[in-house]
């Protein structure tokens, strides 16, 4: 079970969190003028990297805040966490 450092509450067990998939998927500003292909890309296409992955988590059984996590999908190491709207911090590879 992962131990996730909530940027608002501190480190908590994974069971307190909900997973929200890949982070930084920008919703197209003007859906009406977005092509079908681009819209489908936004809706359905996600990265599935072996390694570093930026993803969203929500502290569902805590402060209920969404935030971003950079996690290594191989080692489960959590490299960094940052709040919604903040740019991803530079992390050493």
């Amino acid at each position: 079970m992962l131990r996730i450092p909530c940027p608002y509450c501190g480190p908590r067990d994974e069971t307190e969190f909900a997973y929200g998939g890949e982070a930084h998927i920008a919703r197209p500003q003007n859906p009406a003028t977005t092509t079908d292909a681009d819209w489908a890309d936004f809706l359905f296409m996600r990265k599935n990297p072996k390694g570093r992955h930026r993803e969203r988590w929500m502290h569902a059984r805590g402060c209920r805040q969404w935030f971003n996590v950079e996690r290594d999908t191989v080692t489960h190491q959590i490299v960094t966490v940052y709040r919604m709207g903040e740019p991803p911090p530079e992390t050493p590879r």
Partner: peptide
């Protein structure tokens, strides 16, 4: 409730 919170927090802060 989670759905509303998600949109408000992540897309429309």
């Amino acid at each position: 409730l989670g759905w509303l919170e998600e949109w408000v927090q992540t897309e429309w802060p």
